[in-house]
Design a binder for these strands. Sequence first.
DNA 1: TGATGGATTACA
DNA 2: GTAATCCATCAA
Length: 201
Amino acid sequence: MGAVHPVVNLDRPVLEVAPTLLGAFVEAGGVRVRLTEVEAYAGEGEDPGSHAHRGRTPRSDIMFGPAGRLYVYFTYGMHWCANVVTGPVGEASAVLLRAGEVVAGLDTARERRPRVRDRDLCRGPARLATALALDREALGLDLLDPSSPVRLLPGPHDAALVRTGPRVGVAGEGAATPWRFWLDGEPTVSPYRPGVPRVRP
DNA sequence: TGATGGATTACA
DNA sequence: GTAATCCATCAA
């Protein structure tokens, strides 16, 4: 069964779910993070920036599964990034956890990310995954299961502070959609960097 | 089977 | 500004 008290109903369109995750907590590896920045990624054919754009593959498979699962992927040969799967089974979508504020387990987070200021501990998707010790081991975990090693917990959400804009690092058609959401005034929100358009020789 | 480039980060 | 550094995906 699903969660007794889901933080939000994740089994809805990703664009509705994504902004409501701001202010919620993710807890893993002894660290709790308050989410300040996320991005929505939709499914097959709808979103050129999505891993599921070209349909179901071994990697994107989990995005087609039930909402509330953790999707972690490896990129640039060294980094892990974490997503929350959303929407009904058969429809691929997920929310990338881009940044947050460490609100518990600060010492542990500092050990995992030495030599950076506290506000930079989770300021970026791969940094957030590192601070929470998320990697392939966490792929597919149920975030709504209270006994899960990685959990999504309700937190105060102020809709008036939500801002939107284009996603970071997404180029091409997918760059036009303002599917990045963040909380205004939060120092932990990552700096914006436009996607580099793919150039053909 | 080989080529390509990435939802990034740290450091010069 | 650019090196680091695997692997999913795709073309053949």
